[in-house]
Design a protein around this nucleic acid. Structure first.
Lengths: 251, 251
DNA sequence: CACAGGAATCCCATTGAATGCGATGAGTGA
DNA sequence: TCACTCATCGCATTCAATGGGATTCCTGTG
């Protein structure tokens, strides 16, 4: 017994402890955390206590919960979150006018991470919430991001997906032709990939007119959108331009 | 030199490193971080590298930025953030109908932390963004939270504020009478505390009809609100009830 | 009411992970 | 070419972190 005979760093352990919490398990006792992380109870207990002291966790009689400190620090200084905050009013506009789910996604690892979303209560339920993730090619938002990623990344993604989800890889939707089309058109619209009847439309958001840093999308069950996406695309593009202006100004 | 002769833990150092980043300084080199935290360059460098490996930070040629991993974990599992996500549609409703700044605040330490905000572009600029903080008594949102806090906390806050900001503590607005009034009325409306002409109105949000866990507020420069807050209060209360139902259902 | 079982918390000898000095290399600007 | 700064690495040092075990604190149960 010493400074961790298992050979993992304090940092890695902290990450493990934090990962233990989820939407379903937001309140965990020290013993439970120890069990799930495989850490000795005493160690888990000490780590949690120290994290609680800093506000990383919140200590309650019943156990520990994730605190607001990390969220606060991240939200304030992570560039992606600053983007989300600045884009928010534009999402809101789109949401108000279209009355559908509106979302803002970025590439994170090999998935789309939805960094903001305004949901329509009357619209169909969709997968993933705020901070949710989806494979890149199953949503229009993700597909736009994939289309504008580097050629190396696109190749990587194809092989990656083939190896991990060989079950039903609809390879035509991530074909180079399809992605080229998305780039040319300046948008992506697709219906029924996750669920029949549901259509996604998304447009890229560029930083200073260059690299694509995010994608703005709507999700709807309005059949009309699938048939004539043009007006919707245009509304999204106007919002996207607003966001681009907003984020290209100051840092 | 050893396992930290300065006597602070790895955890404390990580916290210091993360705190170094801010909205203004979102991209920092290892050397810069070392300078600001007072850590030896080699140590700062190693910590950053390790954090980047886990996704806590993002490593760029020009330096380090805060990554999305911590935000993601926090957003998914911190109860306060789950509250914010669930409340979002209701904030959106209020925002759409009233066309003013709408915000959701919780008590965090001795301040209000705004966990969500929808801003009106045409409305007056207000202090603090999302993840912003304000002293409890300078906004209607904070005052509602203070009014519903425990008597011990209220006493603590008064003495705390007096010692730290003796300059201009408007003690009448945090008097027990005033707070009692806020509780009785079920809302708080006040004008001109931060800026003349600007009025805040806020109502409490209760969990399962009991403890107040958050406050919902609007900020506006509409003079009419200051004179006749009643209709606005009622709209807020309807939204608040919606949120209460939403968060009292499942965990 | 005593007792069992589980959790939280404390204690403390042990030790290897973390540390930071110093050196090297890469990059930049004068 | 030189001077300066930063990133990165190697390595001996050592104390902060560790975890087994004991103790205390609950809580539910027979």
């Amino acid at each position: 017994m010493a400074n961790s005979p298992t050979g993992d760093s304090v940092l890695a352990r902290l990450d493990r402890v934090l990962s233990t919490f989820s939407a379903a398990d937001s309140l965990l006792s020290a013993a439970e955390i120890a069990r799930r992380t495989g850490l000795p109870p005493a160690t888990a207990h000490r780590l949690c206590r120290d994290m609680a002291e800093l506000g990383w966790l919140e200590s309650l009689p019943a156990g520990y919960m994730v605190g607001t400190r990390l969220w606060e620090m991240t939200n304030r200084s992570a560039p992606t979150m600053k983007l989300a905050v600045r884009a928010r009013p534009y999402l809101s506009d789109v949401h108000t006018v279209m009355g559908q789910h509106v979302q803002l996604g970025v590439i994170e690892g090999h998935e789309v991470l939805f960094v903001d979303r305004l949901s329509a209560r009357e619209a169909p339920r969709i997968h993933g919430g705020v901070a949710g993730r989806l494979p890149l090619h199953v949503s229009a938002t993700g597909l736009v991001l994939l289309a504008h990623a580097s050629p190396e990344f696109r190749t990587f993604y194809r092989t990656f997906y083939r190896t991990h989800h060989q079950e039903a890889a609809p390879s035509q939707i991530i074909s180079e032709d399809r992605l080229e089309q998305v780039r040319q058109q300046g948008y992506c619209a697709q219906t029924g990939v996750i669920e029949r009847e549901v259509t996604g439309v998304a447009v890229p958001i560029r930083q200073r007119g260059r690299s694509v840093v995010a994608a703005l999308g709507v999700v709807t069950d309005d059949d009309d959108v699938a048939r004539r996406p043009a007006p919707w695309v245009q509304m999204l593009q106007i919002a996207a331009r607003g966001i681009q202006r907003e984020i290209s100004g100051r840092t």
